[in-house]
């Protein structure tokens, strides 16, 4: 793992691309593809949230002493996004195309405004303040 921050950002883009593929599949009425891409997107997002919550945020909190600052906001937003993923899952089960597209649209906007804060502010701060970030993130078994 050369640059741990680049890896985290890459995970963001990967989930974005998968969600865009879900939307594309739904527009083409390809439900099996939509289902498959959604499964992958959900897995990718949840894995990424866990990596941040279990490894990155605690390390940042320990390094800066800020426990109720930005990481609290990020954890809150993860919770909201998990709820939205559940809502999407419900629409997927109900095979409600427009309902699912609407939930996906909301989820996408939420993810984007979350990621931009992490990528522009939180991650650079982590790179600056957290010692040995690469080992820390590798420990969770995430791909390099």
């Amino acid at each position: 793992m050369s640059d741990p921050i680049a890896t985290l950002i890459h995970q963001h883009h990967e989930a974005d691309a998968l969600l865009a593929r879900v939307e594309g599949a739904l527009r083409g009425d390809d439900w099996p593809l939509a289902q498959r891409c959604f499964d992958e997107a959900e897995q990718s997002l949840l894995g990424h949230f866990e990596l941040e919550e279990q490894q990155l945020f605690p390390a940042f909190e320990a390094a800066t002493g800020m426990r109720h600052g930005p990481t609290a906001v990020m954890r809150d937003e993860h919770a909201t996004m998990r709820d939205l993923l559940d809502s999407c899952r419900m629409q997927l089960i109900a095979a409600d195309r427009d309902g699912l597209l609407a939930e996906l649209d909301t989820l996408l906007v939420l993810i984007q405004q979350h990621n931009v804060k992490e990528e522009n502010v939180l991650y650079p701060m982590c790179a600056l303040r957290v010692a040995d970030l690469a080992t820390l993130l590798a420990r969770s078994g995430q791909p390099a």
Binding site: T64, P70, L128, R129
Partner: peptide, 11 residues
């Protein structure tokens, strides 16, 4: 928080 930028998006 002196040298590094303050994390202000919660503000």
């Amino acid at each position: 928080m002196s040298a590094a930028p303050a994390l202000a998006f919660e503000r």
